[in-house]
Amino acid sequence: MIRVAAVGDIHMGPDSRGVLRPAFDTLHDCADLLLLAGDLTRHGTPEETRVVAEEVTGLRVPVIAVLGNHDHQDERPEEVTAVLRDAGVTVLEGEGTVVDVDGTRVGVAGTKGFGGGFAGRSGGEFGEPIMKEFIRYTRRCADGLRTSLEGLDRQGCAVRIALTHFSPVPDTLAGEPLEIYPFLGSYLLAEAVDAAGADLAVHGHAHAGTEHGLTSGGVRVRNVAQPVIRRAFAVYHLEPGAERGTGALAGASR
């Protein structure tokens, strides 16, 4: 059994120094890895990122993160990434990483993702350049996610997890105003997950949403935004080799 701890949207700043550390120090008893689903800071400054780094430095489980929109606010995502990497965090954007858990290869593919909306109610690559770029950016994130999940499959991962900040499905947005769904996620992310297959998709971003969802291909989705899970992190137990959404058609036929 693989034990996955995850949290997003911890929005740390100087006033939250040390707040999560006592809970994180218990991780090695209950989890094999910790996923951070973006919005680790408020403005994406190196100073705020150092607060995050202090929370996770020296934990006895691997820590894997994607950035969120807040982590881009100061337009220095490379510096945010560098501070986290110096603290031992694996930061993913359009790439995957493999963790060995007692001989089982666990793969995590990550991208921040972006918005655009959900199938039948989404923006398209049409019109003004800025509108086209909006959707193309999301598509690039989704393509990176699909390619990394496929790569993890080729590397023999028995468990694969998709880690994003923006949501792949509308299910986990329930509680958010419908009008802002296009700014909370995109079906392109779910399509990527379903095309490549995964055992679990984890995201944050939607503070007023709900924890549980499912892609149309049958992959379980969990919104781990801290205001949603109402804890320092959530823990999910996954069985290697259990059913997974290997492609939308396989999922739909179940």
Partner: peptide
């Protein structure tokens, strides 16, 4: 306005 709870969870979710 609620302040986020920083405590560890008391149970996992079984997804198997």
């Amino acid at each position: 306005i609620v302040v986020a709870d920083p405590t560890a969870p008391d149970r996992p979710e079984e997804l198997a």
